[in-house]
Design a protein around this nucleic acid. Structure first.
Lengths: 171, 171
DNA sequence: CTAGCACGGTTCAATGAATGAACTAAAGTG
DNA sequence: CACTTTAGTTCATTCATTGAACCGTGCTAG
């Protein structure tokens, strides 16, 4: 196996998934895309990621089919990165992973609460505990939780200090 | 931020979780522990991982509370690595991630099928679709799926060619 | 009693990836 | 025309991963 991101001999779907989303920074880029971040500069400011790494990750995610690059204005020509349906489906692993972190690594309580907007129920796992239905990403709202530090001042952090519908663009 | 595994400014539970489970190889080590792998040599043979990296990951996971190191015989003294309750809870993010990989990256169908042993239902997501209950790891059985290549010959790969109860030690 | 072996590591040089600062380029604005 | 905004690229340095070799403990067979 070469150095780097592949797990060639593994014959395992988890390993295949990790070849796409397992690199450093990648899942945080996708998390931001789920929050509605679409522009290079917004990712950059919210993640504190080296520019070269962000470029590489965005390109790789577009190639993998997780993000799509889309022209949103012509003068000047500007592209944005939005989640594909395949990318949106990462919502469930991401939520369950974040909730695991919340249970075991957050000493001050949850930082963000995810609610099913159609019934206002707080989510746990992938099914809405109230209505039993599977909850798609665009029916979810994030709200600040008691554990949030709020020590950041970029546009994304500020937008997430109030309830925010997932996938809605950041102002 | 230093180079490496931390995401210091993030104030996010997903980032905190990724500091523990986001490094290269780490989730595959945990996957193997869920299959019942416990010994250094078995991890080594199944993962094709450099020895130094495996040592570092096992030590880090023990420090983080995901694995516990336990003496299982005294002559000669031998330790094994087993999942803690905190580690077992990673089951749900791992399953959902693997199923995402299966849906989008496996061209030949699923490699492994996960069934709820109490009702024999194939699992999708974290709730058993038949009985509606949340499915804990020790009620799950893995079975080979049609997409499995079966080109490996270490003890773990061989054990997983027939149905195997999760967490049961590898023979 | 001793040579060999199994297991669970550590050490080390080489290679590749991440980092952060500086630079580039295209296009619009005052 | 100078300046800004956005979205990158380039590059030297630092750090992590790799794979091969080595180490140490305590059996085990002759």
């Amino acid at each position: 196996m070469a150095l780097g991101k592949n797990y060639d001999g593994q014959d395992c779907s988890l390993a295949k998934a990790l070849e796409v989303i397992g690199e450093r920074w990648t899942l945080l880029v996708i998390r931001d895309a789920m929050y509605g971040v679409r522009r290079y500069g917004d990712f950059l400011a919210h993640l504190d990621i080296p520019r070269a790494v962000l470029s590489q990750r965005l390109t790789a995610l577009v190639e993998a089919g997780v993000l799509a690059r889309r022209r949103y204005q012509d003068t000047p020509p500007r592209d944005e990165y939005v989640l594909t349906p395949m990318g949106r489906e990462l919502w469930i692993p991401m939520l369950t992973m974040a909730q695991w972190g919340e249970r075991h690594l957050a000493d001050r309580g949850p930082r963000r609460l995810f609610h099913h907007v159609t019934c206002d129920t707080r989510l746990d796992l992938a099914h809405c505990p109230a209505c039993g239905r599977h909850v798609p990403l665009d029916e979810v709202e994030v709200r600040p939780g008691p554990g949030l530090e709020g020590n950041r001042n970029d546009p994304v952090s500020r937008a997430l200090e109030s309830p925010h519908r997932m996938l809605d663009p950041i102002p």
